[in-house]
Design a protein around this nucleic acid. Structure first.
Lengths: 367, 367
DNA sequence: CTGTTAGCGCTTTCAG
DNA sequence: CTGAAAGCGCTAACAG
C-alpha cells in the first residue's frame, strides 16, 4: 500500500501518467524527454524523477507517427543464409547503432511476391530501404519500389541514377587471374555463380577478359550457384574429364571451399597439383586448409557504406543520387602456391578499403 | 493534366485521400483494406480501385498505435558475426514471414549498456522480444527486461520460469565423448568456449562427466572463445607440449575448424594422427576437409521454435511460461575416423529434431 | 451497409 | 518557462 510501484506492472506507462505524477503537463514531459525547449531546472528534475519511478519509455509508434520519422531502416536481402549476408548485416548494424537507428531485416528468398509483401508492410515503419537484389532481371526493380522512400540498392544491376553501391567484381576477377598467371598457372577453370546474378556475371566477365588478354592459356567454365555444394560438384565433373586444370577460380569463397573439399577427397594436393582461389574473403576463408587465396571484399564495409549512403539520402531527399563501388583487394594465402610477383594485396580502385570499425581479423595474411 | 497520377509522387498517400477518391468515408476504406466488417460489393470495388490508382499503403506506425499491435518482434543477439547467428536469424525469419511478422534485429555486442539502449528503443515498436544472452552473469537478465512485454530467452542461464529455449549442450557433449571412445580415442583434449558462456559451460560439463565415467582416459582442457583463431592457437599450444592427444574436441565448430587448420599446417594428418570434432554443425562443417564430425544443433530450428514460443507468449500473455530444449544429434563425418559402433546419429532427447522448413543440406551424412 | 467520432501516445505550435 | 490543444494516420464503437 506504500508509494512503491509494483515491479511487474503489466500495463505500459504513458507520458500522461508521468505528467500527472510530476505535476506538469505532457508537453513539459515531452520537452525534457527529448531535451529540447526550455524547462526550469527544478521542473526538469521532477520530471526525470517521475520517469524513473515509473520506468517510463516513450512509445515508438506514437512518436514516429507524430514526428514522421522512425529512425529505422529496412534491410531486404535475397537470403539470410551464410557468412556473406551475415557480414553485410553486421556492417549495417554497426553503422546503424552508431547513429541510433534500428534495423528491420528480412530475406526475400528471391521471391518477387514476398519482396512486394515486405515492401508493402514497411510504410510508416522505416525511413529508408537498403535493398540487395543481385538478380539481373531486377533491372526494373526501382519501378516497383514504393515511391517517395529513400532507397539504396546493393549489388544491383542499376540503371536509373539513384543511390546504389556495388562491389568491384570485374576488377577483382582480373587481378586474380593475373595473379594466377604470375604463379605460372595457365590452364584455369572457372566455377561461375548463378547465371542471373550481377556479381557473378561481372566476375565472369572479368575472368574472361583477363584470360583473353593472355596468350597460350586454356579456359574452362563450369556452372555454379554460389553454394559449397556447387563447388563440390563442379570439381567432381572436372575430375571425370581428361584434362586437369592447374588452377580453379571459384566465383565465390563458398564454392571454393566446396571445391577444396572435393579435391582433397580425390587425393589431389592443393596447391601442388591444382591451385584453388575464391572471391569475397568470408571470415572462414583463412581457416580452411590450405588457407584460401581470394579477392577480399570487406563485406561489412559494404554494409556500412550502404547505410551511410542511405542516411545521406534520407537527410537529403532531393539529392541526385550517387553510385559507389567498394574496392577489392587480392589476398594471397596458401591455396594457390607462393607468388613471386609484386601484385599481392593489390587494390583495384583508387581508394583503399577502409577498415571496418571492428576488425575481426586476428591473423594477417602473409605479406 | 489527365487523370494520371504522377508516378513519383513523393508525398505519401493516406487513407483519407483514398476515401475521397472513392467517395466513401475512411471507415469504409479501413474496412476493405483489412477486409473486416460488411461492405457492399460495389463499394468494395470502388475502394479497391482507388487504392490501386493511388498506390495506397497503410501507415504502419499509425496502425500499430491504433490497434496496439505491431506484428513485429525484436531479435537481440550477442553479436551478428558468423554462421551460428546467421542461422538463428534465418530460422526466425522463416517462421516470422510465415506468420506475417517483421523482424527488428540487433547485435548487443555483449555490452550491457547497448542492450539497455535497444530495449529502451523498442517499446511501441514490437510485440515481443527474442533475447539471446548466453552470458552466465545474465542470470538477472529478466529483471532488466521491460515489464509487460513477452520475452523468450535463447540459450540463457534461466532462472525464473518464463519462456525460454536452450540447446541440449550437456547431452550432446556426452554423446560425442562416448563416440570418440568407440573409435578408440582415449586421450582427449577439449577446447573450451568462453568461460562465462552458458552453452560453453554446459558442453564442458558434459565433456567432463563423460570423461570421468571412463577409466584409463586422459583429459586436457584448453581455453577458447568460440572463434576460429582460438581453435588455432589452442592447437599451437598443444603442439608445443610433449604429449599429443589422439582427439581434439572443440566446444564449437568454428574452433574445430581453426584447429583443423593449425593441425594440417603442422603436418599432422586428421584423423589418422589426431581426430578433431566440433559442436553446432554450422553449414560449412561438411565442407571443410576432412568433413567435420560434430554435434548437430539444427540452429535454424532453434530460431524457428523460439519464434513460435514467442507467438504463444504474445497471444497468451497470462500463460505460465515454458522452457524447451532443442535436441542434438551426433553427425559422424571423416574428421574422427570411422566409427564401428552403433551410436552414430544418436538423438539426445526424446524428440527427434524436426527438419527446418527449408533444408539447406544437400549432402547426407554417411549413415 | 456506411458515416461520425473518439481515441491510440506523442510532439508542437501558440498563447499565456 | 509552461500548458492547452490540434494534429500524425488509422481503427473501432456507435449511430444512422
Amino acid at each position: 500500500m506504500g508509494p512503491r510501484i509494483t515491479p511487474t506492472a503489466a500495463r505500459e506507462v504513458t507520458i500522461k501518467e508521468v505528467a500527472a505524477r510530476a505535476g506538469v503537463s505532457v508537453a513539459t514531459v515531452s520537452r525534457v524527454v527529448n531535451n529540447k525547449g526550455p524547462v526550469a531546472r527544478e521542473t526538469w528534475q521532477r520530471v526525470i524523477d517521475a520517469c524513473q519511478a515509473l520506468r517510463y519509455m516513450p512509445h515508438g509508434a506514437a512518436r514516429s507517427l507524430s514526428i514522421r520519422r522512425t529512425n529505422t531502416v529496412e534491410v531486404l536481402l535475397p537470403d539470410l543464409y551464410g557468412e556473406f549476408f551475415s557480414e553485410v548485416i553486421r556492417g549495417i548494424d554497426l553503422a546503424a547503432r552508431r547513429r541510433g537507428y534500428l534495423l528491420l531485416v528480412s530475406g526475400s528468398h528471391s521471391d518477387w511476391g514476398e519482396m512486394a509483401a515486405v515492401l508493402q508492410a514497411v510504410r510508416g515503419r522505416v525511413d529508408g530501404l537498403l535493398v540487395m537484389s543481385p538478380d539481373l532481371e531486377a533491372r526494373s526493380l526501382r519501378a516497383h519500389l514504393p515511391a517517395g522512400v529513400p532507397v539504396v540498392l546493393l549489388n544491383c544491376a542499376d540503371d536509373s541514377g539513384g543511390y546504389s553501391i556495388t562491389i568491384d567484381n570485374h576488377g577483382g576477377a582480373q587481378v586474380m587471374v593475373r595473379h594466377l598467371f604470375s604463379t605460372g598457372r595457365k590452364n584455369i577453370a572457372f566455377i561461375a555463380g548463378p547465371e542471373r546474378n550481377v556479381d557473378a556475371a561481372e566476375r565472369l566477365r572479368g575472368f574472361r577478359e583477363a584470360m583473353e588478354a593472355a596468350p597460350g592459356t586454356s579456359v574452362r567454365e563450369l556452372p555454379g550457384d554460389f553454394s559449397e555444394a556447387a563447388g563440390y560438384s563442379a570439381i567432381r565433373e572436372i575430375l571425370e574429364s581428361s584434362d586437369r586444370p592447374d588452377a580453379v577460380f571459384a566465383a565465390n569463397d563458398s564454392m571454393a571451399i566446396g571445391a577444396l573439399c572435393a579435391l582433397q577427397e580425390a587425393g589431389l594436393r592443393v596447391p601442388a597439383d591444382v591451385a584453388v582461389v575464391g572471391f569475397d574473403d568470408i571470415p572462414i576463408a583463412r581457416f580452411v586448409s590450405p588457407p584460401l587465396t581470394t579477392v577480399s571484399v570487406s563485406i561489412s564495409e559494404l554494409g556500412r557504406r550502404a547505410f551511410e549512403l542511405l542516411l545521406e539520402a534520407v537527410e537529403n531527399p532531393s539529392a541526385p543520387g550517387r553510385i559507389e563501388a567498394v574496392p577489392t583487394r587480392l589476398v594471397v594465402r596458401e591455396s594457390c602456391g607462393s607468388a613471386p610477383g609484386p601484385d599481392r594485396n593489390q587494390v583495384t580502385r583508387l581508394r583503399a578499403a577502409e577498415q571496418p570499425a571492428i576488425a575481426p581479423e586476428k591473423e594477417e595474411e602473409s605479406s
